[in-house]
Design a protein around this nucleic acid. Structure first.
Length: 515
RNA sequence: CGCGGGGUGGAGAAGUUAGGCAUCUCGCCAGGCCCAUAACCUGGAGGUCAUCGGUUCAAAUCCGGUCCCCGCAACCA
């Protein structure tokens, strides 16, 4: 029954700071994929949310002189506002401080504990007295705390451990056989070679207050792994019962490359321990570099979602991020490159194309000519290379390519298919010269303009997952309602001829002003 | 020999799984068009596909060596 469902998740973001471009990238990509699957008619659910427990939150809250709960309320709201500004169509926003989530985490931990998968152990940490906090190896420079230039002391602390090690072989097998897909291929290889080195048991709890209390030992709270990862199911209103909700498992879990290992090991082991189904696919995308450098506050080259929104608007930002780089690989970005691409693809491309098409239509109407589709069927004997057969075939194969690329999550490639359609139509207009047809009152005029507008309809629908507001504007301009179009079903709206010949064509404002 | 990825006209990328005319976007040059947001269309210049060797009728692609660059190495999208 649930063959036709599509569940996609983003990671939940740690809300000790503001949303940055990487969060936006993952979330926009997930939204595009979700919107595409809704277009296909699938029962689609998009989940994102925030990770709100842990020591760093406590510290950040203390610096702001705030209660942790008030602090995460404030910060997770910033994320929700950003997603609103980016027109993200998430079906839920899961917060790890929500009551239902905490309850489900506790039930799950108890279950793992009862099965003997959690045992009492020790956590060895590097503690910096200056910072009053634990450091990881990565935090250290030459073995010293970067803030205090002191060597941290080794501290042993009681905690509960999770038997991750026992899951190595089964996880390896599931990945090798693609029962659990990891894409792209190089990331799968990386995970497999990591698994070859073996898995160690990991700490599952800490002695800090800000977290989910362990049911059997309230002096400890859940560490990030059981707390954060379970959001992917609690986000579906799961309360920890034995059976997963019908939407689970996820078809796609999106993430960036820095967290693939923990997902492919710890998260999967938790699911195996709870005897819940595994996600179908973990898809890993790359990082952004700015002019070849890693984005960092100290270098001062950070580009924020708000910077992009201010410059390019909602749809401009969505489009530029989605097409900036091959999906699944690192990419180099800069505001200069964004400006170029904005002008080339959005202003000069789709924006100008729509403007010239609508203007031609208006001139045609002023000349008293109507849209028509009549004579093509009887007109096949002519030598016109722009005949309707070619025209229809072209659009059909374009839809196939488009769908194939999006099914494979190749966002950048599907955008390229649409760009080809735009070029094709620009070329058609230049070649057929509708302004001459109108002037000469040529009997083909109505058909030619129909062809142009019908093609605009297809382009707008292809763009719908990427730039929904703009697609909406374009469809409205040719008297179509996006929701009604989608209702017709994929097979219908991708066919040639969806535009009505009596459609009222409205002028629309400039879609993307040039930079 | 820790693991993984990469080196393709001036810039950014595709193509490598499956060998078969080196492709796309931006930039540059020349022409065209006059519907459109100084837009759009056509043509052109520019590449020994990092490098050396091998296999083959044929190599960016397969094999071996060398030189560079970049990630990861347990809670940074």
């Amino acid at each position: 029954m649930k063959n036709n469902k599509f569940y996609i998740t983003t990671p939940i973001y740690y809300v000790n700071g503001d949303p940055h471009i990487g969060h936006a990238y993952t979330t926009i990509a997930a939204d595009i994929i979700a919107r595409f699957n809704r277009m296909l008619g699938k029962d689609t659910f998009l989940l994102t949310g925030s990770d709100e427990h842990g020591e760093k939150i406590m510290q950040a809250a203390a610096i702001d002189n705030m209660d942790p709960q008030a602090f995460v309320d404030k910060n997770s709201a910033k994320f929700e506002i950003t997603w609103d500004n980016l027109n993200i169509s998430n079906d839920n926003f899961i917060r790890t401080t929500s009551k239902n989530h905490k309850l489900a985490v506790q039930k799950s931990l108890q279950k793992l504990f009862d099965k003997g998968l959690i045992y009492k152990g020790e956590h060895n940490g590097l503690y910096c007295i200056g910072c009053e906090q634990y450091k990881t190896e990565k935090d250290l420079v030459d073995g010293l705390c970067s803030d205090h230039q002191k060597k941290p002391i080794e501290v042993k602390e009681d905690c509960y451990m999770f038997k991750l090690s026992v899951f190595r072989n089964i996880i390896k097998n599931k990945i090798e056989t693609d029962e659990l897909q990891i894409k792209p291929e190089d990331k799968k290889n990386e995970v497999l070679s990591f698994l070859n080195e073996g898995l160690k048991d990991i700490s599952f709890s800490r002695k800090i207050k800000w977290g989910v209390e362990l049911p059997w030992d309230t002096t400890q709270t859940a560490y990030v792994w059981p707390d954060a990862f379970l959001n992917y199911i609690t986000g579906l209103d799961w309360n920890g019962e034995d059976k997963a909700p019908p939407m689970w498992p996820a078809e796609v879990q999106l993430m960036s490359k820095d967290i693939i290992r923990v997902h492919a090991t710890i998260w999967i082991a938790i699911l195996l321990g709870l005897e819940l189904p595994l996600p179908k696919k973990l898809f890993v995308h790359g990082f952004f570099l700015v002019n070849g450098q890693k984005m960092s506050k100290s270098v001062g080259n950070v580009i924020t979602p708000d910077d992009l929104l201010k410059n390019y608007g909602t749809d401009g930002t969505r489009y530029l991020l989605a097409s900036a780089t091959p999906f699944g690989h690192d990419g180099d970005i800069s505001m200069d490159k964004f400006d170029l691409k904005y002008n080339a693809d959005l202003a000069n491309g789709i924006g100008n194309l729509v403007a010239r098409s609508i203007s031609l239509t208006k001139k045609m109407k002023d000349a008293g000519i109507k849209l028509s589709t009549n004579s093509f069927a009887t007109n096949n004997s002519n030598q016109d290379t722009w005949g309707d057969q070619i025209f229809q075939h072209e659009i059909h194969s374009a839809w196939e390519d488009y769908k194939k690329n999006l099914d494979d999550l190749q966002l950048d490639l599907s955008i390229r298919v649409v760009q080809e359609q735009i070029s094709f139509l620009d070329n058609y207009i230049t070649t057929v010269k509708p302004w001459e047809l109108i002037r000469d009152n040529n009997p083909k005029t109505g058909e030619v303009i129909y062809n142009i507008l019908e093609r605009i309809r297809h382009i707008a629908l292809m763009m719908l997952p990427f730039i929904p507001e703009t697609a909406d504007k374009i469809l409205s301009a040719i008297s179509l309602d996006p929701e009604q179009e989608k209702q017709k079903g994929w097979e219908t709206f991708t066919k040639w001829g969806g535009l009505l010949t009596d459609a009222e064509i409205k002028e629309s404002a400039i879609l993307f002003p040039r930079k």
